[in-house]
Design a protein around this nucleic acid. Structure first.
Length: 508
RNA sequence: GCCGCGUUGGUCAAGGGGUUAAGACGCCUCCCUUUCACGGAGGAAUCACGGGUUCGAAUCCCGUACGUGGUACCA
């Protein structure tokens, strides 16, 4: 087989869901693993669902995730155009649909939406709540199977609105091999006559996916499990249009579930976690759906956690760089069962990535968060040092603000509940003297600070531990953060003395 | 309703005829630190259920249940 070519085929109708990103990621990883090509093809054949900005948004998400396409409407490529609406303009789909009609494997159907609705009403029953347009009913409908050739020609020439439907065969078993699930079998009798070409001339997904996968020389086709039921249509189309030997290998990816059933963007709002890769505002309703990026996730963590949702290396490794993923990814280690998304675990992945990634990688993002919260970052070296000091305490990027704010501004309040039980005149005297000794210090560093602090405690015969805790509250406002002496050194002598004085003024 | 797909601890999951059924997240206990976090050390799952096949099944087969998807001129 020639080199691997895979495609991610999103439809620009709104935000990019977790599952969509994962599908894109698996495509990308598979391509990179095999030294192949990753293509993004935009499936915009439904004009009624077109959403302004959605396509650009999808590419922004992919870029943020670091999964850049080799070919796409934005990146170009040998098989342009990559938007199906543009391909339709070139008449690409029509010719194949007509070829099938000529061969008797598809037919023109002139039924109006009203007539279709009527048919469904007529055939609806308790045992068959959703009647299909299939071999049972097609001979009762208005199409080139029931109309005389002359009538069909007349209707066609009169420009009557019509579609082209596939004519599924009778009593045929349609099977194919799925890379994840093995042999999948279907009865052709149970498959309906799907519309291939709509009345507006646009192809449906069913026709477009087969034609474009062929034309773009796709070797492996990955998509969500929700496509499994219509796979026999695609296989059948392949068989009659291009030959089964040319058909890509299929892999139907498992679903990603939410806390209760299929994961939806509603779950996000309901349970407080993001579902989209990046913030998405619906241009019509102005409704904002939160994204992982804005929530404070690192792209490294995001693709890592997504990759592990349905796939594992078979080892104990859980943290992977994108390169490692590409090296180790294999489709046969993808699970067949759906996976429930666990936000806590997702947070853990981010925490791990914040711990191991060089602060330089995300300093700018944290800086934005600080400035958004009114803290001007002027000294980059100081900022970097602070970030290094608190990174282990941060799970999401915005946590940095809460964890490091005191390096920039004096505490606005003190955790008195922790201090007061241990507070007395002796301690007050201690801190008063401590301030004096601090100001006399010639070099302000952790070791010196600690020595002065402990020596004085010993002289006054007070337990160092209690003093340290109080000192911490004075500097931070709360019982949190790295070593106190490190904090004192970092914020400097001036601020240390000031904060001790502030506390002394507040404590009784 | 019909059809497809799936089912190992709360979650992600390894394991594919003989194992003390890995590991991770989360939870709990303890150590470290008179802070928080990190880091250590521990604790808690018999594999949806019922039948087979087999000397032996989480692992193979068949049912059932449950979940999930499809059943559009949406993808």
């Amino acid at each position: 087989m020639s080199s691997v070519r895979v495609r991610f085929a999103p439809s620009p109708t709104g935000g990019l869901h977790l599952g969509g990103v994962r599908t894109a990621l698996y495509n990308y990883l598979f391509a990179k693993h095999h030294g192949g090509t990753f293509i993004v093809r935009v499936e915009d054949t439904d004009q009624t669902r077109f959403v302004e900005g959605a396509e650009q948004y999808i590419f922004d998400c992919l870029e943020w995730c670091g999964i850049e396409p080799d070919e796409s409407p934005l990146h170009g490529g040998e098989h342009e155009p990559y938007r199906q609406s543009e391909r339709k303009e070139q008449g690409i789909y029509l010719q194949y649909a007509e070829e099938l009609v000529r061969k008797g494997q598809a037919y023109y159907a002139f039924d109006t939406p009203e007539e279709l609705e009527q048919m469904r009403q007529d055939h609806k029953s308790a045992e068959n709540p959703s009647p299909q347009y299939d071999r049972q009913v097609r001979l009762k409908m208005k199409n080139s199977l029931t109309l005389s050739p002359g009538e069909v020609t007349r209707l066609l020439q009169a420009g009557t609105r019509h579609v082209i439907r596939v004519k599924m065969p009778e009593n045929e078993e349609i099977s194919f091999h799925d890379m994840i699930r093995g042999e999948i079998r279907n009865e052709s009798n149970l498959v309906d006559d799907k519309v291939l070409l709509k009345a507006d001339g646009m192809p449906t997904y069913h026709l477009a996916v087969v034609v474009d996968d062929h034309l773009m020389k796709i070797t492996h086709a990955f998509r969500g499990e929700e496509w499994l039921p219509s796979a026999p249509v695609h296989v059948w189309l392949w068989k009659h249009l291009f030959g089964l030997d040319k058909m890509p290998q299929w892999a139907h990816l498992p679903l990603i579930l939410g806390p209760s059933g299929k994961l939806s963007k509603r779950d996000g709002a309901k349970y407080g976690f993001p579902v989209f890769a990046m913030n998405w505002t619906d241009p019509r309703t102005q409704e904002l759906t939160e994204g992982f990026k804005e929530k404070g996730f690192l792209p490294e963590a995001f693709i890592n956690l997504l990759a592990l949702l349905g796939w594992n290396a078979g080892t104990e490794q859980e943290l992977f760089t994108k390169t490692e993923l590409a090296e180790q990814f294999s489709i046969d280690r993808v699970h067949s069962g759906g996976a429930k998304f666990d936000y806590e675990k997702a947070r853990w992945f981010n925490h791990e990535w914040i711990k191991r990634l060089d602060v330089e990688n995300y300093r700018l993002k944290v800086r934005e968060i600080f400035e958004l919260n009114g803290i001007a970052v002027t000294d980059d070296a100081y900022f970097t040092k602070v970030l290094e000091l608190v990174r282990e305490r941060c799970t999401l990027l915005p946590d940095f603000f809460g964890q490091a704010g005191y390096f920039y501004s004096d505490p606005t309040g003190f955790d008195e509940a922790s201090v007061l039980p241990k507070w007395d005149q002796a301690k007050r005297d201690y801190f008063t003297q401590l301030s004096q000794r601090f100001s006399a210090l010639s070099s302000w560093d952790t070791a010196a600070i600690e020595t002065v602090f402990k020596d004085l405690a010993q002289e006054l015969n007070i337990k160092v531990g209690e003093l340290q805790m109080i000192f911490r509250v004075m500097l931070v406002g709360a019982k949190t953060g790295p070593g106190v002496f490190v904090i004192a050194e970092t914020i400097g002598m001036g601020k240390t003395l000031k904060r001790i004085a502030n506390a002394l003024a507040v404590f009784p």
